[in-house]
């Protein structure tokens, strides 16, 4: 089996492609971390790195299609009597390539000639559904990282005695003192971060007003030391997609390229952040609902592909159960790929 794995790896990544890969990695590092040329952001680097497994996915689809035209399916039927060796070889070969890609991509996180991006945070607007009588209901839109903090700007101009103690409290009794002229920093509890919804009120009710357009959710950006962890999560996102590719190709009998496109579509759906969307009626809304329904059928793993300028919003938001579900989906796909219908031999 190692020889066949090595042969598949050579087919999928010929020697000159490795030069391209390392050149691409270098370019991604410069464009992401260089203080003058680059965006100086880890999220940008993670986004560029996610291109490599995508290229590998389509390249693998093409190689599978070529192998079909080269008579491999017949040879497999004749020689691989139990029918699992060839799919396992393909899966392990692709997994090894994916692993190499991510191990190499981790190198700039450990050893980087450029200065690390400074510690920073992303700030996101928050929807406030109800804001009368010093009582506010916040919608943070889907789960947010547990390290997030809600920033409240309070207007005290209508308060008769600004020197009295005023507290901001949640329904569970957790409270913080509000001080005029200071941002109120409300660290989210794990439950609030998971729910994405929370309620606060002021105590006593003295007429403190919340400046709604200035309410923001502060999410710290992961630092360079968290890069390998985020790359590992990205690896876990793409890994099952390769098993799905094999299942579509072998069990679904689709061509390699079409299988790759199907996996691309499935991956896109899985990576789509869940947003509350106001859907009207009509054919487009119906289509949108169908898309959302399909999205809901997949485990919520968009947090695995936290990349780009706003990656802190998604980073580390996927629950262990969701990740396990996604991996089980991959294992199921691999099992289907191995369970190709074969003629009964005596």
């Amino acid at each position: 089996m190692p020889y066949l794995i090595w042969a598949l790896m050579r087919d999928c990544m010929p020697r000159r492609w490795w030069f391209g890969f390392f050149a691409g990695l270098l370019l991604a590092t410069v464009l992401s971390f260089d203080t003058n040329l680059g965006a100086h952001s880890l999220g940008s680097y993670l986004a560029y790195v996610s291109v490599f497994p995508l290229v590998l996915l389509f390249r693998c689809g093409w190689v599978l299609q070529q192998r079909t035209s080269q008579g491999w399916p017949h040879q497999e039927k004749l020689r691989d009597s139990r029918g699992y060796k060839a799919p396992l070889v393909e899966f392990f070969g692709l997994s090894t390539l994916l692993l190499i890609i991510y191990v190499c991509a981790s190198i700039p996180c450990w050893w980087n000639p450029y200065p690390s991006p400074p510690a920073s945070a992303g700030y996101y607007p928050v929807t406030i559904h109800f804001g009368a009588n010093d009582y506010w209901l916040f919608d943070l839109h889907s789960p947010v990282p547990a390290s997030s903090t809600l920033l409240l700007t309070l207007d005290w101009s209508q308060v008769q005695n600004p020197e009295q103690d005023v507290w901001i409290q949640d329904p569970n009794g957790r409270k913080l003192q509000a001080i005029p002229g200071e941002l109120l920093r409300w660290p989210l509890s794990p439950a609030e971060a998971k729910e994405g919804k929370m309620a606060l009120h002021s105590l006593p009710k003295v007429g403190v007003e919340l400046r709604r357009p200035l309410t923001r959710l502060e999410i710290p950006r992961p630092g360079m030391q968290q890069g390998p962890h985020l790359l590992l999560l990205q690896f876990l996102f793409f890994w099952p997609l390769f098993a799905m590719l094999l299942a579509w190709h072998r069990r679904g009998k689709l061509s390699g390229t079409l299988s790759a496109w199907t996996c691309f579509a499935l991956g896109s759906l899985a990576a789509m952040p869940m947003q509350a969307t106001d859907l009207d009626s009509g054919p487009l809304a119906l289509l949108a609902r169908a898309v959302l329904l399909l999205k809901l059928a997949l485990p919520p793993v968009e947090g695995l592909l936290a990349a780009g300028a706003r990656m802190e919003r998604l980073a580390f938001t996927s629950a262990a159960t969701s990740i396990s579900g996604w991996l089980v989906l991959g294992a199921l796909s691999l099992w289907l790929a191995c369970k190709e219908k074969r003629p009964v031999q005596p």
Binding site: L31, S32, A39, S44, A47, Y48, S50, V51, L54, F264, G267, S268, L269, A271, M272, P273, Q275, T277, A288, V291, L292, L305, A307, G308, A309
Partner: peptide, 13 residues
């Protein structure tokens, strides 16, 4: 509504 794979690197560029 979706964010296809590859959008983020493209946005980065």
């Amino acid at each position: 509504m979706t964010l296809p794979l590859g959008t983020r690197p493209w946005q980065g560029a």
